[in-house]
Measured scan of single mutants.
Amino acid sequence: GSVVKEKKEKALIEVRPYVEYYNELKALVSKISSSVNDLEEAIVVLREEEKKASEPFKTDIRILLDFLES
């Protein structure tokens, strides 16, 4: 629970300088966080969101995924 939350919060802070739609990304992460149990599940849902998103938000999600998977 809290470790996953920390990882996601740290990821958002780390990617902030590189993303165009930070507030939207943060809102998406919050929405996903409330419906998943762990980081792996969150990553799966983020990948689905990435497929549906259009640029440049798609790239923002990709940047976040790269950080979460590192």
Rank of each mutant, 00 (worst) to 15 (best):
L65G: 07
E14M: 14
V29Y: 10
S70W: 10
L65W: 01
L39K: 03
R62W: 08
R16N: 03
K10G: 09
E69K: 08
S2H: 11
E6D: 14
R47E: 09
E20C: 15
I13C: 14
V44W: 11
P56Q: 06
V36M: 04
V4I: 12
K8H: 15
D38Q: 05
K52D: 06
S34V: 10
V44D: 13
K5Y: 13
L39E: 14
L25G: 00
E40A: 09
S30Q: 14
L12T: 01
V44K: 11
K10D: 10
R62T: 10
E9A: 03
I63S: 03
E24I: 03
V44H: 11
L25H: 00
A11R: 02
Y21N: 14
S54W: 10
E55Y: 12
D66W: 12
R62N: 08
N37A: 11
E49C: 07
V44P: 10
R16A: 10
E55F: 10
Y22D: 01
R16C: 06
N37K: 09
I63G: 02
E48P: 00
D38T: 14
L28G: 01
I63D: 02
E9I: 07
L28Q: 01
V3H: 13
L46I: 05
K7Q: 14
D60V: 03
K5S: 12
V4Q: 07
V19E: 01
A42W: 13
R16F: 05
S34R: 07
E24Q: 08
K31D: 11
L28A: 02
R62Y: 05
Y22E: 00
E55A: 10
S35H: 10
F57Y: 08
V29A: 03
R16D: 00
K51P: 02
P56V: 04
E55V: 08
Y18S: 04
K26T: 14
K52F: 07
I63W: 04
E6S: 09
K51A: 13
R16I: 06
R62K: 11
A27F: 09
I43F: 11
F57D: 01
F57S: 01
L68Y: 05
L12A: 01
E55T: 06
G1N: 12
G1W: 01
L68Q: 00
E69F: 07
V44F: 10
E48V: 13
V29L: 08
P17T: 03
L68E: 00
K7E: 15
V3Q: 12
S54L: 11
E24R: 07
V45P: 05
S34G: 09
K58W: 02
L12S: 02
L64S: 00
E55D: 09
F67C: 05
F57R: 01
Y22V: 02
I32F: 03
E69I: 09
S70N: 13
V29R: 00
E50F: 09
F67N: 13
Y21I: 01
V15H: 01
E50L: 08
V36I: 07
P56F: 04
Y18G: 03
L28C: 02
K51V: 11
V15L: 08
E69M: 10
L12G: 01
I13Q: 14
E50G: 09
E49A: 04
K51N: 12
V3M: 08
P17S: 04
D38L: 10
E69L: 08
K31A: 12
A11F: 12
L28H: 00
R16E: 10
L65C: 14
L65Q: 01
E9R: 04
K31Y: 09
K10Y: 11
F57G: 02
L68F: 07
S70G: 13
Y22T: 03
L25K: 00
V44C: 12
L68R: 01
R62I: 06
I63M: 05
S70E: 07
R47P: 00
K58T: 04
V36D: 05
N37F: 07
V15N: 00
E9F: 13
L28F: 02
A11E: 05
S35M: 14
E9C: 15
E9W: 15
K7V: 15
E48H: 13
L64E: 00
E49G: 01
E49W: 06
N23E: 14
R47T: 08
Y18L: 09
V3G: 13
E41W: 03
S70T: 11
K10R: 07
V45Y: 13
L25S: 00
Y22F: 13
R47K: 11
V15S: 04
V44Y: 09
N37I: 05
G1Q: 13
K51S: 12
R47Y: 12
S54R: 08
V15K: 01
E20K: 15
E9P: 07
L39C: 15
A42Y: 13
Y18A: 03
N23R: 06
I61T: 00
F67V: 12
R16W: 05
L28N: 00
K8M: 15
P17M: 05
V19R: 00
Y18E: 03
V36G: 04
I61Q: 00
I63R: 03
L46A: 01
L39F: 13
V36Q: 03
P56I: 05
K5A: 14
K10T: 12
A11L: 10
S30M: 13
P17R: 04
E49Q: 04
A27K: 04
Y22I: 03
R47W: 14
E20I: 15
V19W: 02
K58Y: 01
N23K: 05
K7D: 15
L28P: 00
F57N: 01
N23M: 10
R16P: 04
K26Q: 11
E14R: 06
L12E: 03
K52I: 08
E14T: 06
E41H: 06
Y21P: 01
K7M: 15
L65E: 00
Y22L: 03
V29I: 10
E20Y: 15
K10P: 09
V4P: 07
E9L: 10
K51L: 11
S54H: 09
V3R: 03
V44I: 11
K5L: 14
E24L: 05
E41T: 08
E20V: 15
F67E: 06
K58E: 01
A11M: 06
E40T: 09
E41S: 10
I61M: 03
S2Q: 11
K58F: 02
K10H: 14
S33A: 12
L39M: 14
L68N: 00
S34E: 15
A53M: 05
R47G: 06
E49V: 05
V4C: 15
K52P: 00
V36T: 12
S35G: 09
P56L: 05
K52V: 07
K8Y: 15
L39R: 03
V44T: 09
I43V: 10
E40S: 10
E49N: 05
I32W: 03
A11H: 04
N23P: 06
A42F: 15
L28D: 00
D38P: 02
Y18D: 02
E20G: 07
V29S: 02
I13S: 12
V19Q: 01
R62V: 06
V44G: 11
K51G: 11
L68A: 02
F67K: 11
V36H: 06
A27E: 12
K31S: 10
P56S: 07
L64V: 02
E41P: 04
Y18P: 02
V3E: 13
I63E: 01
E41F: 04
E6P: 06
I32E: 02
K26L: 09
V45A: 14
E6A: 06
V29Q: 00
D60G: 04
I13L: 13
E6Y: 03
S54M: 10
D60P: 03
L12H: 02
A53V: 05
E69Q: 11
E14Q: 11
S33I: 13
S35A: 12
A27C: 06
E50V: 08
